[in-house]
Design a protein around this nucleic acid. Structure first.
Length: 266
DNA sequence: AAACTCGGCAACCGCCCCTGG
DNA sequence: TCCAGGGGCGGTTGCCGAGTT
């Protein structure tokens, strides 16, 4: 809902992502993964820079993103880790399941920072921090925080750590809107829009599979997901049912092994 | 009801790090 | 060891909606 779309000097589109662009990105990444962010928009038929695609995917389209409604526990974790780590948002976000660094950062600047400032001046006011400072002192900084950032928890695509929920969420949810649930955040409902196919999409909501019932429904609907889902990115090619086949755009390219560009596979 | 202000947050920018040649 | 390319991160911007005047 933010920036008005515009183009830069090289014709790269900027600004708010449209539902159509989201569909293209989801479809491509779901099918082929993010093998090269810089090249990806070209193959996916997007007039976006690679960085923009990456950001959009990681912050909003990636599966299992939680949005809004921070719990007290989450806020405590953010505050505690921020005390220890400073503005290491990616490290902090890594400890909060489903939260992105961008969202944590925004939440800090818009809510937590102010609250902490107020608490400093009004120690007796309602606080989300514990009175006993030892609670914070005793909270261990997970080991992963000491690791190089290249090993951060975020795992865009495909490795052994991928969960069933992750795999389920890779299906083109935009084609099955009944299988993903929007967050209840009231402020985000206002940004609900519809694309040309009538599928309700809210950019702010992203794609969320958050409850067991939904996951179970997914499993029932799609059947068993193989463990090597991500090691077989072209599974959809052999799927006669078409359920694994994401939306294919007419201008949808993917690189073939001999270096030629091919139109979207079926 | 209109104008104005402010807060929230999606998205961009630029720098840094990592990796491979 | 150096260099280039790509990815990741944190800071910042700026639009939109909600609240206030």
């Amino acid at each position: 809902m933010v920036r008005t779309p515009c183009c830069d000097e090289r014709g790269m589109k900027k600004g708010t992502w449209t539902p159509e662009e989201d569909r293209k990105l989801i479809a491509y990444v779901t099918r082929y993964g993010c093998w090269n962010w810089r090249q990806l928009p070209k193959f996916a038929g997007l007039s976006r820079c690679g960085k923009s695609c990456r950001l959009r995917w990681l912050n909003y389209l990636r599966p299992n993103i939680k949005r809004g409604n921070y719990t007290t526990e989450e806020e405590e974790i953010i505050i505690t880790l921020h005390e220890k780590l400073g503005n290491k948002w990616s490290a902090i976000a890594a400890q909060l399941e489903g939260r992105t660094d961008n969202e944590v950062k925004n939440h800090w600047h818009t809510n937590l920072k102010k609250r902490l400032m107020m608490n400093k001046h009004k120690p007796s006011s309602v606080s989300i921090t514990h009175d006993d400072h030892h609670h914070h002192e005793e909270m261990e900084v997970p080991k992963s925080l000491d690791q190089p950032r290249s090993t951060a928890v975020t795992d865009d695509f495909g490795n052994a750590e991928t969960t069933v929920d992750d795999q389920i969420s890779q299906i083109d949810f935009l084609d099955y809107p009944e299988l993903w649930s929007p967050q209840p955040s009231s402020s985000e409902l206002s940004s609900m829009t519809s694309d040309t196919t009538g599928v309700a999409i809210t950019a702010a909501d992203g794609l969320v599979v958050e409850d067991n019932a939904t996951s179970a429904a997914m499993e029932t609907f799609f059947g068993d997901f193989s463990d090597n889902f991500w090691t077989e990115p072209f599974l959809a090619d052999n799927d006669p049912s078409g359920l694994y086949t994401p939306l294919m755009e007419p201008d949808f390219f993917y690189p073939s092994f001999d270096g030629d560009f091919l139109y979207g596979a079926t």
